[in-house]
Write a protein that binds this DNA or RNA. Structure first.
Length: 555
DNA sequence: GCCGTTTTCGGCCCGACTGTTTTCAGTCG
């Protein structure tokens, strides 16, 4: 439904529709996408941003998979013309102009027309524009440039390191600060003289300068990632950080509140006419608006503004709240570090418990046997003496077979302290089978945690198809935790499903799924996903003290 | 098309950069 409204908004804009109505459709699409319940099962008018007219469209859509007005506009605007607006620097106005004047109906046709010199004489299209459009089309044809947080974070930290000597302050903002699981570009904010722009453009990670002025420079790295560097005056640091952290939807909503007060909010500050109300820190700005400071991970206009106005924001789980890790590997199966090294590294992180969960026999290439598992258990018992302040739990990562069964029989499973059960094959099962499979795993009394529940690999493998409402109901009923696998290319559960699961009363485990010592640090990414799903420490079993965790595992 | 501790009608976020224009529209975030 959200995709259909999004498409309608775009087509409506292209056919000259009123810009404010376009925004209404976009807002409704976003609100529906982020709504924690199935919109088919609640009065759709209860979704904020959905009024009478959109509710009607929703109703028709739920009945037959489309609505009349959408069908009409699809008939008017060829699919390829819609794709034209995906070309960077080409928006709805120019796309429609090209279609009407020259019959250009796809990015491919546009490239041909430019090469044949065919844009001459169309108003607003000069030589420079033609060049930019051609480059944009080539860019579009290359692999998608969204990268997952692991890649983006590494790049951002490298960029900051290359500039921080010459900047009074510098930090990353944007979707990376909001801990999105993928980012389309990296936003760096700095307080520095304008000469920093020249330093920036001369860096080895700059493949192309897209735009450059005194306050903003955009570049592209050799990997195709866009990086924006913005300068703000020192006194506007907080306003700049707030502004460039976004999201756009959050900022738009915030400014509607600002405008009603007769004030103005920009990257330079919160103003009453010429008078500065707040600018130095984000906290001052939110406080001046009568709100609690909103953690970046919540800034998606998904109800956080209303909550912040009422002082009702959740106290989000943080990295410091984590007391352990319940899903890790050693070189007994597919890890690369020894049991001793992994445990020592976990202890150095300050954990008060740590589970070793090597694979079970079903994943034949890892050659696990009962004998090996029992030997490992004995090794752990001996190692425990070295770490009196950290409980080492002996666990297993079981494989969930196509029928929902797991690899070891009950009498062996009961010997483990913790069992994580995950899907590793048969990803393409039909929805009903996949749903039954996951529910069967939840109902297994020896299974404590469902590992990387959707099995997605960002950019490589899609989520499995399941009725998640049904799965989460089963998980809540059986007291089975859903994992948030912290590997940055997994981020699994994804944040939207985390929020849905929480709505059903599910508990979570934020695990590293480490296969090597450095992977233990990935939990920070999992915490980001948890925060985006509005989780508090109460929701996350590995923030609980050892006694309470053991009660959960034995319960 | 939506919404209301200023409004049920009249508003709806703000600024930087580019390219093309002679003062600004389009695009982007």
């Amino acid at each position: 439904m959200a995709a259909a409204l999004e498409e309608y908004a775009e087509l409506f804009a292209m056919t000259g529709g009123d810009a404010f109505r376009v925004r209404s459709y976009q807002k409704a699409a976003k609100a529906i996408a982020g709504f924690p319940e199935d919109i088919a099962s609640v009065p759709v008018r209860s979704v904020p941003g959905v009024g009478e007219a959109i509710a009607k469209k929703v109703e028709e859509y739920l009945g037959r998979g489309s609505f009349r007005q959408l069908d009409d506009l699809r008939g008017k605007v060829p699919e390829g013309v819609r794709r034209l607006t995906r070309v960077p620097s080409l928006g709805p106005k120019k796309a429609v102009l090209l279609f009407q004047e020259l019959g250009i109906d796809s990015p491919e046709a546009l490239a041909e027309a430019i090469k044949a010199g065919g844009l001459k004489g169309v108003k607003g299209f000069g030589a420079k524009t033609e060049e930019n459009l051609l480059r944009g089309i080539e860019q579009m044809e290359r692999a998608n440039t969204r990268v997952h947080t692991g890649v983006a974070m590494g790049l951002a930290e490298r960029i900051i390191a290359s500039l921080e000597d010459r900047a009074e302050r510098i930090a990353y903002a944007g979707s990376l600060r909001r801990m999105r699981d993928t980012v389309g570009d990296i936003d760096i904010l700095a307080v520095a003289p304008e000469t920093l722009m020249e330093v920036f453009k001369a860096q080895p990670y700059v493949a192309e300068v897209i735009a450059s002025g005194g306050k903003k420079t955009s570049i592209r790295t050799p990997e195709g990632v866009q990086v924006d560097l913005r300068l703000v005056p020192a006194e506007s640091w907080g306003a700049g950080l707030q502004y460039f952290t976004g999201s756009q939807a959050h900022n738009v909503h915030l400014r509607e509140i600002v405008v009603k007060k007769g004030w103005k909010l920009s990257e330079y500050g919160l103003f009453d006419g010429e008078r500065v109300i707040a600018a130095g820190s984000e906290e001052e700005i939110y406080r001046a608006l009568g709100m609690d400071w909103v953690p970046p991970a919540l800034r998606e206009d998904g109800g956080e503004i209303q909550a912040a106005l009422k002082g009702g924001l959740p106290a989000l789980v943080t990295v410091d709240d984590l007391k352990g890790d319940l899903h890790t590997h050693t070189d007994l199966t597919d890890g690369i570090a020894s049991l001793e090294d992994m445990v020592a590294a976990a202890h150095a992180r300050g954990h008060s418990y740590y589970a070793v969960t090597d694979h079970a026999p079903d994943l034949a290439m890892h050659r696990m046997t009962l004998e090996k598992a029992l030997t490992q258990r004995e090794q752990i018992r001996q190692l425990q003496g070295k770490y009196p302040d950290m409980r080492i739990l002996h666990g297993s990562e079981l494989n969930i077979g196509p029928d929902g069964s797991v690899d070891w029989p009950a009498e062996i499973l009961s010997g483990f302290d913790v069992c994580v059960a995950s899907i590793h094959s048969h990803f393409g099962q039909p929805r009903e089978e996949m749903t039954r499979r996951l529910i069967a795993a939840c109902e297994n009394p020896h299974v404590h945690v469902i590992g990387h529940p959707t099995t997605r690999l960002i950019g490589k493998r899609p989520q499995v198809d399941a009725d998640w409402d049904a799965v989460f109901r089963a998980a809540a009923r059986t007291g089975t935790a859903m994992e948030i696998d912290s590997f940055p290319d997994r981020a699994d559960l994804p944040a939207d499903l985390v929020r849905l699961a929480r709505h059903h009363g599910v508990r979570f485990s934020i695990d590293s799924d480490a296969h090597a010592v450095p992977h233990l640090a990935n939990q920070r990414f999992g915490v980001g996903t948890a925060q985006r799903g509005w989780l508090t420490p109460e929701d996350v079993i590995n923030t609980w003290p050892l006694d309470r965790l053991l009660g959960f595992l034995n319960g």
